[in-house]
């Protein structure tokens, strides 16, 4: 019954991540891709919304998109999991549906 949400916009540019987290139910997974990976950075104005949602939502971030943007894994919010493309596919198949927030 679970949903995988993907978010591809930066939280400091658009409110896509906020909209996703407002409507994602407990037990969902959120995968940050493309410019969405900036949402996984710790110590930003928007880190709090991810940290607050973490108690019942699992967070993932696409490693290739992190590397492209020069973001090292030690800059991520604790508890965010880095996945590769194969991991993305696994998440999509493990969940009942995928919702792509744009």
């Amino acid at each position: 019954m679970a949903t995988l949400h993907t978010v591809n916009k930066s939280p400091t540019d658009r409110n896509t991540l906020e909209a996703c987290l407002r409507l994602a139910k407990g037990g969902s997974s959120v995968l940050m891709i493309e410019d969405g990976v900036y949402g996984a950075l710790k110590g930003t104005q928007k880190s709090g919304i991810v940290e607050d949602a973490m108690k019942d939502i699992k967070f993932y971030v696409l490693g290739g998109d992190l590397k492209a943007r020069g973001i090292e894994e030690n800059k991520l919010i604790d508890g965010v999991n880095v996945v590769d493309y194969a991991g993305f596919v696994n998440l999509a198949t493990e969940n009942d549906r995928v919702q792509s927030w744009l």
């Binding site: 930066s10 400091t12 540019d13 410019d35 900036y38 490693g63 290739g64 998109d65 590397k67 492209a68 943007r69 020069g70 973001i71 090292e72 590769d84």
Partner: peptide
């Protein structure tokens, strides 16, 4: 704003198949 991110060091776009213009 997010323009700051253009200047981050250590960018490596090999895995996403785009030109690294940093």
């Amino acid at each position: 704003d997010d323009g700051i991110y253009q200047l981050l060091k250590g960018q490596d776009t090999n895995d996403i198949g785009m030109k690294n213009f940093s």
